[in-house]
């Protein structure tokens, strides 16, 4: 095989993988897991997210109203047993609508962050690994994305292509991959010079193989943290866009749009603004707690004060 490593290490790696007891990664993963579980805030975050996702998925089913069913007789009701969050000016059940918006927030957040991460990691790895011209081109590309205000790109895109949730997720990902790319590039640059990568290269491993096999696994720790934080960023951005009328549009709804619908009535009915608003805050807060926990868990030096 042209791309095998030195026989010894190859054999060792394979044996480990087969038996699933590759010693080092496992003990690190185990350690990280222990640290994460001991991180109280992180657990609160995970628990909060599960809770809210469950409420958003199961809730509307219990409440029994379709999100777009109007009912002129029940307009502008306050919270009650039959309408938990009240109703809007054409009698639609606000809990069902909030749940639908919340689901969008979560789904867009996850999808966009994942896409951005995959793309950013790849671009960063390529830039760092190949260096020189490739690196320079990617760097300029990133600068180009950053120099144009996000809002402009997002708005133009949504004007041109409409704004179904997956399109929104796609553009957000297309704008937000740059930070991860930079981080990964930095890590790859420093890894590249290290022994095991040199050895693999000396043994004639292909570029692709080195990147996939040796570099990406090392990058994962930093990336996992970034993805989590990115989910929060995406949710905030999406709700802001929808609030400005540039994201998800009526008759569909999202948390940002719900706030926007309610804002003209805020003086009489502040609660109606607060419920979707607090939902956003709650979700982002939980996501950031998880991110913080992951950072502490995956970065061994984070809490060890040296002397």
């Amino acid at each position: 095989m042209a791309d095998t490593l030195m026989p010894g290490s190859q054999a060792a790696i394979n044996a480990d993988e087969m038996e699933g007891l590759s010693d080092k990664p496992k003990s690190f993963g185990r350690l990280a897991f222990d640290r994460f579980v001991r991180h109280r805030l992180a657990l609160v975050g995970v628990f909060g997210l599960i809770l809210i996702a469950a409420a958003f998925i199961v809730g509307p089913w219990i409440s029994g109203y379709p999100f777009d069913e109007t009912n002129v007789r029940d307009r502008m009701l306050g919270p009650s047993a039959s309408h938990w969050f009240g109703t809007d000016e054409i009698g639609r059940d606000l809990f069902t609508r909030t749940a639908r918006g919340g689901r969008y927030s979560l789904v867009i957040g996850l999808v966009a962050a994942t896409l951005a991460t995959v793309f950013g990691t790849l671009m960063g790895a390529i830039a760092g690994y190949y260096g020189k011209a490739v690196d320079a081109v990617i760097a300029q590309f990133i600068n180009l994305i950053l120099v144009v205000p996000f809002l402009l790109t997002l708005a133009l895109f949504s004007l041109r292509f409409g704004s179904t949730w997956w399109r929104l997720a796609l553009v957000l990902a297309a704008l937000l991959w740059t930070r991860i790319a930079r981080i990964v590039r930095g890590i790859v640059l420093s890894l590249k010079e290290q022994e095991f990568v040199m050895a693999a290269r000396a043994a004639g491993a292909s570029h692709m193989r080195i990147v996939l096999r040796h570099i990406l696994p090392n990058v994962i720790g930093a990336v996992v943290v970034e993805v989590t934080l990115l989910v929060g960023t995406v949710i905030v951005l999406e709700s802001t866009l929808s609030f400005l009328g540039l994201g998800v549009k009526a008759p569909d709804t999202s948390l940002g749009l719900l706030v926007s619908d309610a804002k003209s009535k805020i003086d009489d009915d502040p609660i109606r603004v607060l419920t979707p608003g607090i939902m956003i805050v709650f979700i982002v807060l939980c996501v950031n707690f998880v991110g913080d926990g992951l950072r502490d868990a995956l970065d061994p030096k984070s809490k060890l004060e040296k002397n």
Binding site: V236, V259, K263, I266, D267, I278, L285, N288, F289
Partner: peptide, 22 residues
């Protein structure tokens, strides 16, 4: 952490309502 989780439009609306109207 909490402040960081507030999108600015929610923060603005809350402050506006709280510190002016209420």
């Amino acid at each position: 952490f909490i402040g960081f989780a507030f999108p600015s439009f929610v923060m603005a609306l809350v402050l506006q309502n709280l510190l002016a109207v209420q």
